[in-house]
Design a protein around this nucleic acid. Structure first.
Lengths: 244, 244
DNA sequence: CTTAAATGTCTATTGATATAGACAACCATA
DNA sequence: TATGGTTGTCTATATCAATAGACATTTAAG
């Protein structure tokens, strides 16, 4: 672990800054040899804080299930997590990370119908007020939540997509049944922000965590927009890969 | 401004969470009509906190130069910041955001020579230990720091790149002088993490801020890797756009 | 000139954050 | 079984973060 300086009086508690740093170190593989985090007293010395502050940080990581403290022995690394998520013309959730995990699953959290806002109309190249189907979905890899997405589809073409998606758990399959044999990613916008309340519950994050936000437009082979989606990924668990 | 819920007892002070949200709103253009942030009492009501907490948040934004409070009138928006940064085959720093700002500039912070680590060798498809030139650069847009990058180049082909870059402020021009008329982006990996100490100083961020990290590989037209770089962007100031 | 609305300043109180020190409980191992 | 190293628990204190209320100061508008 390099660069141990910690910022004080910035609105971010020391224990949280330290927890974030240790989590990053774990994901980076810094403790792979021993499988353990350094002793609390060592960390306290490294970060220049009191041992109790280190304990608060480790308690937060234990709450996330990333480490587990064992009295008398030390603090064990329980779980590392960062999946590589490719972004290309043929971006699909399950295919991209399929070879990195044993099982991928997509579940429908909610669905509904609404009128296109100005922003959505602009993206999907339709008129404001056009009816849209909205799907709220959760992507899982090996039973761990990875992404949370809201998607919009023109209701005239895809009015029944919620039903089919609920049955198949796949957007690709639902498109096929509705007469779209194939589709391509037109553009993806990527930003990062702090996790909001829904992220915390759906993605099982701890407050202060970071989410990568991908806003994507998919079109059919005739280049007609078929889906606009906003996906939120736990930044600790994924990495985006753009291949040109 | 939507979704006003704020997290309590998370290690991140309320005033900082609120400052982040207001900054995002400003960048999103929510206050463009009036050019002013809502009154403190209104914000206090919206966020469900005391007016003094709002004042702390606005004081932080004023410190960043984003807003300016005027007694008797209100709090004015001074500056918006979020650049769209395209990622494609022809990704270059200055061209991508050139039409969004008046001036882009790139400065050399440091340079040196080193032996390729295993990871760098793998990326650049060379042998471990091969000599590499390392450049540390800072990208600016309208005199505001936007990105901080570390780049590696094979020393046999690009031994003098530091000199040329220092003179021209452009990687593209340096490549041209060294016999690489054009180059393409092979792959970009995108992650997000909390700002570290160097980010805070170089990018003028406040602790707890988020950085988007892009690890990129560029190759010449013969598909031979010429540059591997790790760039760190202030997440509040940029958005990545991937066009397929 | 008056008034309403906005930011600026002050005091006081409570809870969260961080430090400090001491000691108990547990584990591995010599 | 004795010891060193580790996590767990407790008390105490100081500072930061957040709330609450009162009032001053400035600006714009009637």
């Amino acid at each position: 672990m390099a660069g141990q300086k910690i910022q004080r009086q910035t609105g971010v508690a020391l224990w949280r800054q330290i927890a974030d740093r240790i989590r990053t170190s774990i994901n980076h593989g810094d403790f792979d040899e021993t499988g353990m985090v350094p002793p609390e007293t060592t960390l306290a010395l490294q970060f220049g804080v009191n041992r109790h502050t280190i304990r608060s940080a480790l308690a937060a990581l234990a709450q996330e299930g990333i480490v587990r403290a064992v009295q008398g022995r030390g603090t064990l690394v329980e779980r590392k997590e960062r999946l590589s998520f490719p972004i290309s013309k043929r971006t699909r959730f399950s295919q991209g990370i399929g070879d990195q995990v044993r099982e991928t699953r997509s579940v429908l959290l909610a669905s509904g119908e609404e009128a296109a806002s100005m922003e959505l109309a602009r993206q999907l190249k339709i008129k404001t007020g056009t009816r849209l189907v909205r799907l709220e979905t959760l992507g899982q890899a090996d039973h761990r939540p990875v992404s949370r997405a809201t998607s919009w589809f023109p209701a005239d073409r895809f009015g029944d997509i919620a039903e089919i998606y609920r049955a198949t758990g796949s957007i690709t399959k639902a498109f096929k049944e509705l007469g779209v044999p194939d589709y391509v990613r037109v553009v993806t916008e990527i930003t990062a922000t702090h996790a909001d309340e829904n992220d915390l519950t759906d993605l099982q994050l701890s407050p202060g965590a970071i989410v990568l936000v991908a806003q994507a437009l998919n079109a059919d082979l005739g280049n007609v927009p078929v889906q606009y989606s906003i996906s939120r990924f736990a930044a600790d668990r994924v990495r985006f890969t753009v291949e040109n």
